[in-house]
């Protein structure tokens, strides 16, 4: 048995149908996966930003707030 089956005169039709189907399904899968990953990353960043804003360390200035600022410093 050969690796790829031979379909004689129908081969171009069969392979192009399967090839285009694979292209659409894989393309959609990649696009949706990348979009989902980007959304998860953006949400994590925003939640971290909000947590920093609402944390007691940043709300009340004092030794702990200074320490938090130091940790954030580059």
């Amino acid at each position: 048995m050969s690796l790829l089956p031979v379909y004689d005169k129908y081969a171009p039709y069969v392979w192009s149908a399967y090839g285009l189907t694979a292209l659409i399904l894989i393309g959609l899968a990649l696009w949706l996966a990348l979009e989902a990953r980007r959304a998860a990353r953006t949400l994590a960043e925003l939640e971290a930003k909000q947590a920093r804003k609402t944390s007691p360390a940043s709300a009340a200035p004092g030794p702990s707030a200074s320490a938090a600022r130091l940790r954030e410093a580059p």
Binding site: L25, L28, A29, L32, A33, E35, A36, A39, A40, T42, L43, L46, E47, K49, Q50, K53
Partner: peptide, 26 residues
């Protein structure tokens, strides 16, 4: 395939809604 990408899509949309709310709050 539909079930998998429907679940992935809904998860993404829930996160997108949270992103919009958080951006608004910020």
């Amino acid at each position: 395939y539909f079930m998998a990408f429907l679940l992935l899509g809904v998860r993404k949309e829930i996160r997108a809604r949270r992103i919009r709310n958080l951006r608004g709050a910020l």
